[in-house]
Amino acid sequence: MIKYYHFARIAFGDHLNNRLRIFTRYLVFLLLDWVMIAMWDLIYKSGYGPASIPRVDMAWHMAFAQMMFFLSPRLFVVIESDVRSGNIGYFLNRPIPYLWMRLSEGIGALLGNLLIYYVVSIPFIYWMVGGWPSGGAVAIVAVFVGLVLASVLHLLFQILAGLSTFWTNDAVFIYHSYQKFCLLFGGIYVPLVLYPSFLSGEVLKFLPFASLVGNPVGLLFDPTWSGIAGVMALQIFWLGFVGVGLSMFYQMCLRKVEVHGG
């Protein structure tokens, strides 16, 4: 495990070295938050806001839901590039599996983002929302922990998308399809509890897309120990399930490695 820690450590440093990229992404995140918070503000002011969710909770929900997709590095792009260029082959003769090496690097960069987004975002979101969530600090901490697990799950899905390049030669449309599923079934723009009856939130919350966004961010509305335990148990299940699936998929990919040239 120690070698994976060092890969994550170096990636952490490398990620924080690229300040322009971090600043640009953070700026986009704040703009998106501002738009979403302003939109729900308008809905509540016009009297159409859901009575079951206070305005501040909805605003914090929107801010955290957007944050999930900004926390993880764009790992699928790196893997797609490795596969398309054949670079992936050159990592195979090292005593560390490519799959877990890239995941360690992704987690290293994720930690760098967590440091920035968690520390810097709170005052910004508070300033934009104009109040704390009704669940208080416990709710925020619960969401933070839930988002860490969600981000690791998101990294696993990104690796899957990246490795699909072996068959599709293009990971972007796979990743975009995955994102659209998250958008539809993950509770990004509308909390899962508000989903219409034909898309029952009670069923959707068991899907991996909800474990990525809707469930951990939904802890804002239910920051109880049982709620937190339920969300995290489901996340851990999906982490294990996708992790095992990914390992098997990776073995199939290894047979497809073709490196030309020279």
Partner: peptide, 22 residues
């Protein structure tokens, strides 16, 4: 025509990383 070194970091960081890998 391929590099095993981390592009943005000093080579000594890659050496250290490889030493852990090995």
């Amino acid at each position: 025509q391929r590099s095993q070194l981390w592009y943005h970091l000093p080579a000594q960081d890659t050496f250290e990383l490889l030493s852990y890998a090995y």
